[in-house]
Amino acid sequence: MPSITEDRLAELADNWNAETSAPDMQEWRDDLTPEEAKIIDGWDGVYAVGVHNICRDIIAQCREGERHG
């Protein structure tokens, strides 16, 4: 079973952290191994949950402000 080196993991993290919605900034995903893709999918999932939680908290604060405003 292949394993990802620390250097490769750091490279993936750098790419992931620098990624934008521009198509050319996402090209690095095209060459991921299945093992690497699984890791990136996990990072994407955690990010999506975090964004969801932030949005939920903002909405809750807005509603609270409307009730007490």
Rank of each mutant, 00 (worst) to 15 (best):
W16C: 00
I4V: 08
E27Y: 06
Q61S: 15
G65H: 15
S3D: 12
Y47H: 15
T5K: 02
L9D: 03
A48G: 14
I54L: 13
G45T: 03
S21H: 10
V46N: 11
D44S: 09
W16G: 04
L9T: 00
G65E: 11
A22S: 10
M1C: 10
A10F: 00
S21T: 11
E66I: 01
N53L: 15
R8A: 01
E6M: 03
N17L: 12
D57N: 12
D30R: 08
E27C: 07
K38M: 12
A48H: 15
D57C: 09
G42H: 01
N17S: 12
E36F: 02
E19K: 00
E66P: 04
A18L: 08
D57Q: 11
A18S: 13
A10P: 01
E6D: 08
E66Y: 05
D41L: 09
H68R: 14
P23L: 02
N17I: 05
D7P: 00
I4S: 01
V49C: 13
N15F: 02
V46F: 14
D24C: 03
N17Q: 12
L32E: 01
C55N: 13
P34E: 04
D24M: 04
D41V: 06
L12Y: 02
I58K: 13
I4L: 05
G69W: 09
N17F: 04
E19G: 05
E19D: 08
D31L: 00
P2E: 09
E27I: 06
Q61V: 09
D44V: 08
N15K: 04
A22D: 14
A22H: 12
D24K: 02
W28G: 05
N17H: 10
I39H: 00
E35V: 03
R63S: 08
R63E: 12
V46K: 14
T20M: 09
V49E: 15
D14R: 04
V46H: 11
L12N: 03
S21E: 11
G42V: 03
D30E: 10
D30K: 07
D31F: 00
P2Q: 07
C62I: 10
R63N: 14
I54G: 06
H68F: 11
G42N: 06
G69T: 10
E36K: 05
E36V: 01
E36D: 02
G45K: 06
G42T: 04
I54Y: 12
V51T: 14
I40N: 04
Y47K: 15
E19W: 01
A37D: 00
